[in-house]
Design a protein around this nucleic acid. Structure first.
Length: 259
DNA sequence: AACCTTCGCAACCGCAAGGAT
DNA sequence: CATCCTTGCGGTTGCGAAGGT
């Protein structure tokens, strides 16, 4: 029954949480709020409702709108992929005239991470992505085997990053490997990262890749859950301590509020 | 002043999950 | 067990305001 309103019941239902609910903070987002959105989006992906729980005075709709209208553009301008939150340095093509690699985009972000070396087609063209994947392997294996607690994993990864990089194996499909060798076209994103250890980690999976929207859920500790994508976000070449602390922060939130 | 484009925001839509019957 | 209803969520659209030409 519409009770005289030109709205359906569903519209009225949405109106309350998105607009009428007391305590909703309106107006411009502060830089601090934007930073929180960006950082948690890098962990959670497009799970606006989960992000909204971290920012109780903002609605998921507001956060989503602001992210789409402002933050995405800001990240793109900064040379950061708004979906993966990785610097856009990991794709290139070969110039058909000069046969030299063309860097499609470069990051304006100043990171200490090793950068693309386009002149060497036999080496990994994306050190950052592969290192993330290898780190994922290591973390996933440790978590799935439940041999190590987070502290142990943290110590291993942060104290011996080079060793971790050298020891672990990254499985890239043969097609991409072939293209890498041929040097014709190479594009690495998280969809190409597939690891055996990740597969072992998964309790539920619909695909064997990691992506921001794939809902991989892995058993972690007792009954709490963690998403491998969150682990993937650990990149020890990119403010590893901050990432780890943020992850731990999210993990505690996940146990208390988000599960 | 008129027109066009861009932007921000609110609302709509479809889907999935869970509970009630 | 099947069906219906409610709720929650993310993606998308519509529209008015503001700015540019």
């Amino acid at each position: 029954m519409r009770k005289g309103l030109q709205r359906c019941g569903k519209s009225c239902r949405l109106r309350w949480p998105n607009y009428l609910r007391p305590g909703i903070k309106r107006g411009n987002f502060t830089p601090q709020e934007e930073e929180v959105i960006i950082r948690f989006h890098s962990l959670l992906g497009n799970r606006w409702a989960a992000i909204a729980k971290i920012m109780p005075n903002r609605t998921d709709n507001d956060i989503k709108n602001h992210s789409h209208s402002c933050l995405k553009k800001r990240l793109v301008r900064s040379g950061i992929d708004p979906m993966t939150h990785e610097p856009v340095v990991n794709a290139y093509r070969i110039d058909p005239i000069t046969h030299e690699p063309i860097v499609k985009a470069t990051s304006s972000a100043t990171t200490s991470s090793p950068t693309l070396t386009p002149s060497s087609s036999t080496t990994s063209p994306s050190f950052s992505s592969t290192s993330s994947a290898r780190l994922l392997n290591r973390l996933a294996a440790g978590i799935s085997s439940r041999k190590h607690g987070l502290d142990r994993i943290k110590n291993v990864i942060l104290s011996e990053p080079r060793q971790a990089f050298e020891e672990d194996k990254l499985m890239i499909s043969s097609k991409e490997e072939e293209e890498e060798v041929n040097g014709c076209f190479m594009e690495i994103d998280d969809n190409l990262i597939s690891t055996t250890s990740l597969e072992e980690l998964l309790c539920e999976s619909t695909t064997t890749t990691t992506s921001t929207t794939t809902g991989f859920m892995a058993a972690f500790d007792d009954c709490s859950l963690v998403e491998p994508y969150d682990v993937y976000q650990y990149d020890f070449y990119h403010e590893a301590d901050d990432q780890l602390d943020l992850f731990l922060e999210f993990h505690s939130l996940g146990q208390e509020d988000l599960s």
